[in-house]
Simulated assay, not measured.
Amino acid sequence: MKYAKRVLSLSLGLALCSAAISASAIDWWQLGNTKVGPQKTLQEFHQYFQEQFPKMSLAQYALGSYAFNKQAYQQYQEAMQFNPGDLTLAQGKKLWEAKFPDGKTYASCFSDGGKGVAAGFPYYDSKTHQVVTAAMRINACRSSNGLKPLKYGNSDLVALQTYFTSLSNGLPTNVKVEGAGAVAAFEEGKAYYFMHRGQLNFSCASCHVAYAGKYLRAQIISPLLGQSAHFPTYRSAWGAVNTLQKRFMGCDKKVGAAPQKLQSSEYRDLDYFMTYVSNGVKINVPGYRP
């Protein structure tokens, strides 16, 4: 709980300073308390964003920053008609359906061929005591069928993740945090989200909670709620489809912090926390972002 300890002490101190604030209102720094548990965390985050943006429905959070500007939303609708990410989706479908040397396919590794399964990813595996992501499960499927795992970040693996996740399109995110190990991993992810780091001394929460919906230079900052629902996503800045963890790396670099490796325990726990908080937001993959 290395990150959790730091954030807990900060949270307790800030809580004392905010004692005079109305109990019905939630201030963003209070959301970093790592001792309230997953269920209350989910409730408080949803309440916080409802207080900040009372006219927004839960479904609109899947739009990210596009939900805050009508003109940008129109551009988004136009982009989604010819989303460049659909090329990656098609590539993923082709790979998904290709037969392994033993005659099986990726679908054989997942219940119902993978339909609706990604809505519950990532999840905590009590046997291996770690958070398991879609990329890990896809590579495990390859290994069990006689193929070598793909390197994390590999374009084929990203395409497979995109197609696998698209099999849950239209379904609400439904990640579970059950058991002591799962709660510990969730709290580590939460602590990482609120931990200040890098030369700019920013945390993820500094932007996507405290300044969600506000402009940073020419762009509106997207809220935490719903961010995971459109990943893997096509970003024009990348010129490609990539994953939520790839975005973590970019954010860490921007604040002057050394990024973690893809599928590191830190990023998997962070992924776990962020996706759980977005429970109820419907999946729409591949997304499209500037």
Rank of each mutant, 00 (worst) to 15 (best):
T128K: 15
Y288F: 15
I26W: 04
Q245R: 01
D269L: 06
G226R: 12
S265D: 15
P122D: 10
S22L: 11
L58V: 14
K35I: 08
L95Q: 04
T275P: 01
S206A: 09
F186V: 07
N154F: 00
V183K: 13
Q75S: 15
Y276N: 04
L225Y: 13
F202T: 06
Q50R: 06
S203F: 03
Y48A: 07
Q91K: 01
T128W: 07
K190L: 15
L167F: 02
K5W: 13
V177I: 07
A185E: 11
F273P: 05
F248T: 04
G32E: 02
Y48K: 06
T233N: 05
S236H: 14
G179I: 02
G153F: 00
G181K: 09
F110L: 02
Q77I: 13
V241H: 00
P172N: 13
L14E: 12
Y124C: 13
R247M: 11
P101T: 06
E97Y: 06
I220Q: 07
N174C: 07
K2N: 11
A118Y: 11
N33C: 14
P286C: 08
M80G: 03
G256V: 04
Y106W: 05
H208F: 10
K5L: 15
Y48P: 03
K104L: 01
N284L: 09
F121W: 12
F248W: 10
D156K: 02
L95P: 01
S57A: 11
N69L: 02
D125N: 12
G280M: 11
L8Q: 12
P223L: 09
Q260Y: 14
M80N: 07
S265P: 10
N154P: 00
V255D: 11
T233E: 09
C204N: 12
L160A: 01
S155D: 01
C251T: 12
Y48I: 05
T243G: 01
Q199S: 14
H46W: 10
F202I: 04
G280V: 10
N169M: 01
Y215N: 05
S222E: 08
Y66N: 12
G179E: 02
Q50L: 01
L89A: 05
K282F: 10
R217S: 10
P54L: 06
R142Y: 04
Q219P: 08
A185R: 05
C207D: 08
A210L: 10
D125V: 07
F68Q: 08
Y211M: 12
G116A: 03
S203I: 01
L160I: 00
Q50M: 02
Q52R: 15
Q30I: 08
H129S: 14
G189I: 11
L224S: 13
T165S: 02
L244M: 14
